[in-house]
Design a protein around this nucleic acid. Sequence first.
DNA 1: AGAAGAATACCTGAATCCCGGTAGAAATTA
DNA 2: TAATTTCTACCGGGATTCAGGTATTCTTCT
Lengths: 210, 210
Amino acid sequence: MLSMIIIDDHPLVGEGVSRMLVNLDYIRVNGICKSAAEALTYLEQQPADIILLDISLPDMDGLELCKLIRKQNKDVKIIGLTSTNEAGIITQLLANGGNGYLLKNMERDELILAIDEVMNGKIFLSQAANQKILEQFHSLKDAMNSVPVLTRREKEILQLLYEGLTGPQIAEKLFLSNYTIETHRKNLMQKMNANNTQQLLKLAKDYRLI
Amino acid sequence: MLSMIIIDDHPLVGEGVSRMLVNLDYIRVNGICKSAAEALTYLEQQPADIILLDISLPDMDGLELCKLIRKQNKDVKIIGLTSTNEAGIITQLLANGGNGYLLKNMERDELILAIDEVMNGKIFLSQAANQKILEQFHSLKDAMNSVPVLTRREKEILQLLYEGLTGPQIAEKLFLSNYTIETHRKNLMQKMNANNTQQLLKLAKDYRLI
DNA sequence: AGAAGAATACCTGAATCCCGGTAGAAATTA
DNA sequence: TAATTTCTACCGGGATTCAGGTATTCTTCT
């Protein structure tokens, strides 16, 4: 009997998955955690064979949590869950020790298939995810699949740009020279490969930096 | 016995809600529809007392569907479902004949409460939604709670701006003068009450125009 | 303590955007 | 058909952004 836990702040997801698996005799949903903290505590108490992990949690990035869990347990199978199919996430998840990736609009059959595959040591990606990956590899510039690393200040300014502030407004708000802001903006655009602020923000959202 | 149908393309949601309500004796989930088309067909066959309606459906905007259903049936109770709590949606939903609004991260108790309230003729808004509404009313400029109406061209240009094109690039793509593009951008900003393109895009997203 | 990275600030010039208009042609609606 | 809306285009001026730099100070890490 396999033991599964679900980490998702939406009770609906926990209930839904439970129900989808209710008449499978080889697996049982033993725990539903609504936050990363809860999940870590739970996993200290009792181990699990397979984890369904929502990527967007209230208290921590699911990708981070995935890495943490993997660090503590080499064998548990982790399947990521998201509602939108965003570029970059899939590779990040796999890099952080994930075993699979499902979209929340999945059918019951796909869920069960995913469980079987990862338990057999394979990587499972949802159909839509597969397509995204292919797109990435087909794209001419496939060298840029790594997520840019931003500094604290850069993230802060990115956020303010996202909120619609202009350069000078940000400068005033942070008691900095406008030159400084523009330097940061410039570095951001360089890191993210953008030629203007809109592109910057769009890419940042794809990379889940904001 | 109340008859409920769920309109949502995520099987997970249907299963989850069903499970949350499984041991209530006065309500029964009689149908789960995965698209607007399916829902309309279903409702022609047999009526329902209460409908849980996902706002983001594959084939039609949930707000539109709400209006359609309301046109055909004055009595059915409609509760909107979304995963994110966006400004403007709530008022739109109510304006289109909705009876309530729930976030998908709801607890079982909140779901049941919502059902009871709307069946008693009340409007139910999730806690978070209430807060949003209050924010809207508290805001100084509360005259702008109606969603701006955009023309075809404006929507097109909005989309291209969102994709990161500059004014001149859009002009080239659409075989128009740059002046024309800037005029449209100007009108967009005026309609949406924005002072720069980032704000414009942010607001447009809140209003679900892109 | 020294090196590396981050944050700050400055400069110039060109490009783009923002804001105030006006106005004719085309399409849509009453 | 008349009225209204939408689409198109233009102008000028100021503000902001973009794309190249350079360079000093402040942290942080080894």
